[in-house]
Amino acid sequence: MKATFQVPSITCNHCVDKIEKFVGEIEGVSFIDVSVEKKSVVVEFDAPATQDLIKEALLDAGQEVV
């Protein structure tokens, strides 16, 4: 499964690193693409990962998800 999250609070590479760390810890996540320019995060994943778990990880990383 693939999901795109709009994350307007992404401003720098530190944000990218933190997002990759938090989302990458979720079992089932196979790909993460964070774009500072587009302020988006694209995640490819399989169970047990879910969109809700990914959104929670983004929030835990200090990001706003819309």
Rank of each mutant, 00 (worst) to 15 (best):
D46K: 12
H14V: 15
C12H: 12
Q51P: 12
Q51Y: 15
S40C: 13
D46R: 11
F22I: 13
E20D: 05
C12F: 08
E20A: 11
E27K: 11
C15S: 12
A57C: 03
K2Y: 06
M1H: 14
V43G: 00
N13Q: 15
F45L: 02
V36Y: 06
A3S: 08
L59P: 00
K21I: 07
C15Y: 10
S9C: 12
E64T: 15
E20F: 15
K18G: 04
T11G: 08
E20V: 15
K55P: 02
K38P: 02
E25A: 15
A47F: 14
I26G: 00
F22H: 11
D33C: 15
I26F: 03
G28D: 02
V66A: 10
L58E: 03
K39E: 04
L58M: 05
H14M: 15
E27T: 10
E25R: 14
G28T: 03
V43F: 00
D46C: 10
E25F: 08
V23N: 01
Q51D: 07
C15G: 09
D52V: 09
G24F: 08
T11E: 10
A57T: 02
P8M: 08
T11M: 15
V23K: 00
A47N: 06
E64G: 06
F22M: 09
E37A: 13
D33I: 11
C15L: 10
A61V: 04
A3Y: 08
N13V: 15
V23A: 03
I32Y: 00
V34Q: 01
I19Y: 00
V23H: 01
C15K: 06
E44M: 13
K18I: 12
L53K: 13
D60C: 12
E44K: 09
D60Y: 11
S9K: 04
V23F: 03
E25N: 12
T4D: 07
A57Y: 00
I19L: 04
L58N: 02
S30M: 14
E44W: 15
S35T: 03
S35Q: 10
I26S: 02
V43Y: 00
V42G: 04
E37V: 10
V41D: 01
V34F: 05
G28A: 03
I32M: 04
D46E: 12
Q63W: 14
Q6D: 11
M1L: 09
V34M: 04
Q51N: 07
M1N: 13
C12I: 08
S40L: 15
M1A: 09
G28L: 03
V66W: 04
D17K: 14
S30Q: 10
H14I: 15
F5T: 06
T11F: 15
S9R: 00
V23T: 01
L53G: 05
E64A: 08
P48G: 01
T11R: 13
A47S: 10
F31M: 07
Q6C: 15
F5A: 05
P8G: 10
K18S: 07
M1T: 10
E56R: 15
T11N: 08
T11V: 13
G28Q: 00
A61G: 03
Q63A: 09
A57S: 04
T50C: 04
F45R: 01
V66E: 09
F31N: 10
F5W: 05
T50W: 03
E56V: 09
D52A: 12
D60Q: 14
V36R: 04
K2H: 07
K39L: 07
I19C: 03
K2I: 12
V66K: 09
L53C: 04
K2L: 07
V36A: 04
A3H: 08
E27I: 11
E20R: 14
D33V: 11
E64L: 13
Q6W: 15
I54G: 02
G24D: 03
K39C: 13
S30I: 13
F5K: 00
E25I: 10
V43H: 01
D52G: 08
F45N: 00
N13H: 15
G62H: 05
A47W: 14
D52W: 08
E44P: 02
D60K: 15
A61T: 04
F5L: 05
V23Y: 04
A57H: 02
G28R: 00
Q63G: 05
E56A: 14
E64D: 11
D60H: 13
V29H: 01
A57G: 05
G62F: 13
H14S: 15
V42F: 13
S35E: 04
V7G: 04
L53E: 07
V7C: 07
V65C: 15
V41N: 00
S30G: 06
V41A: 00
I10L: 11
I26C: 03
S35V: 06
K18E: 07
F5M: 05
K18A: 10
V34G: 02
C12A: 12
Q51L: 15
K18R: 11
V34W: 00
H14T: 15
A57W: 00
S9Y: 10
E27L: 11
F22D: 03
K38V: 05
F45E: 01
K39A: 06
V41R: 00
G28I: 03
E44A: 09
A49R: 01
Q6S: 12
Q63E: 05
F22Q: 06
V41K: 00
V34D: 02
A3M: 09
I54D: 02
T50F: 03
T11K: 12
K2E: 06
I26V: 14
P48C: 01
K39M: 09
A49G: 02
G28N: 03
A47H: 13
V23R: 00
C15N: 10
E27A: 10
E27H: 07
N13G: 14
I19Q: 00
K18V: 11
S9F: 11
S35A: 04
K38A: 10
F31G: 07
F31R: 14
D33R: 09
V16Q: 05
V29D: 01
L58Q: 01
G62I: 13
E44F: 15
V41G: 01
S35L: 06
K2W: 09
K39G: 10
A61I: 07
I26H: 00
T50Y: 04
T4A: 08
V36L: 11
F31T: 08
S35F: 05
A61Y: 05
A49S: 02
P48W: 00
L53P: 00
D60L: 14
I19R: 00
D60T: 11
S30V: 13
I19F: 03
K55H: 12
P8A: 11
T4Y: 14
V36Q: 05
E37F: 06
D33Y: 15
T4F: 15
F5G: 06
V36F: 08
V66R: 09
F22L: 12
A3P: 09
G62S: 06
S30C: 07
D46M: 12
V65P: 07
K39T: 05
E25K: 15
D33L: 11
V42D: 06
E56I: 12
V29M: 01
V16W: 08
I10W: 11
K2F: 06
E20N: 15
V41L: 05
N13P: 12
L58Y: 01
T50S: 06
L58A: 01
N13R: 14
D60V: 10
K21S: 07
V29I: 06
V7M: 05
A47Q: 06
I26M: 05
A3I: 14
K2C: 14
P8D: 09
I54T: 02
A47E: 09
E64S: 10
K39Q: 10
Q6T: 09
H14R: 15
K38E: 09
K21H: 08
S30T: 13
S30R: 13
V36N: 03
N13I: 15
H14E: 15
P48H: 01
F22P: 03
A3D: 09
I10H: 02
V29A: 03
V29K: 00
G24V: 05
E56S: 13
E64K: 11
K21C: 05
K55I: 15
D46I: 13
V43C: 03
D52S: 10
D46W: 11
V42K: 07
E20G: 07
V16S: 06
L53Y: 05
I26E: 00
E37C: 06
V36H: 04
A49V: 03
S9I: 05
I54P: 00
I10Q: 03
A3F: 07
T4P: 05
F45C: 03
D17C: 09
C12N: 13
L58F: 04
I32H: 00
A49N: 03
F45K: 00
S40H: 11
F45S: 02
K39W: 04
K21E: 06
I54A: 01
S40T: 15
V23M: 04
A47P: 13
I54V: 04
E20S: 11
K21M: 08
E56Y: 07
S30P: 00
V7W: 06
F22S: 08
T4H: 13
F31K: 14
F45G: 01
V7N: 04
V16H: 05
Q6V: 13
C15V: 12
A57F: 00
F5H: 04
P48Q: 01
I32Q: 01
I19M: 03
D46Q: 13
E20W: 12
S30W: 11
E64H: 10
D60F: 12
D33F: 13
D33P: 03
E56N: 13
L53M: 12
S9H: 07
V65W: 08
V42M: 12
E27M: 10
F5P: 04
G62T: 11
K38I: 04
A47G: 05
E37L: 07
E56G: 12
V23P: 02
V34R: 00
A3Q: 07
H14L: 15
S9A: 06
A61F: 08
C15M: 12
V36P: 05
